Computed example of a mutant assay.
Amino acid sequence: MVRVPLTPSDRERGERLGRLLRDARAGRSIGDIAAAAGISAETLRKIETGRIPTPAFFTVSALAGALGLALDEIVVAIAPPVPEQHVARGA
């Protein structure tokens, strides 16, 4: 199976996800959150640093549960910014 290369947009979304997770962790250890989500601390570290920019849905879901985040909150937080011209017109 050939893996499709990530786009710059994919990488940026991964960076936004990493920032959101780091902020939500708020001083709690990577090990504690990873254990609560059922993943390795190294996997969480890679997601937080953007080295895994497109983690599996179930991984994100487990992290959301461990951090007390709603999935829709994550979707909104990692969505690409809306261009100003669309905001100005209300689109």
Score class of each variant (00 low, 15 high):
R16D: 03
V4W: 04
A70R: 13
G90L: 07
G14C: 12
L17H: 08
A24K: 04
R11I: 15
G65R: 14
L44M: 13
I47S: 05
A26D: 12
E42G: 10
A24Q: 01
R16V: 02
P80L: 07
A91I: 15
P8T: 13
S61C: 05
L17R: 03
P53F: 11
A26Y: 04
A91Y: 13
A37L: 09
G65E: 11
T59H: 10
S29Y: 05
L21H: 02
K46I: 02
A37I: 06
G27I: 04
F57D: 03
S9D: 14
I30G: 11
T59M: 12
G68K: 04
A35Y: 01
E73W: 03
L17P: 02
G65Q: 09
G18N: 06
A26G: 05
R22Q: 11
A88Y: 00
I52F: 09
I47H: 01
L21E: 02
P81N: 11
E15H: 09
L63C: 06
V75T: 10
I74F: 01
K46V: 00
V60Q: 04
P80D: 15
A62K: 10
S29L: 04
R11L: 15
P55D: 01
Q85D: 13
T54L: 15
P80G: 11
G50Y: 12
V87S: 05
E42Y: 09
L69M: 10
R13I: 15
G38F: 10
A24R: 13
G14P: 06
V87D: 03
R51C: 05
A77E: 00
M1A: 14
I39L: 12
H86N: 09
P55H: 00
A88T: 05
I52R: 11
A24M: 03
I30H: 05
Q85T: 11
P5L: 14
E73H: 15
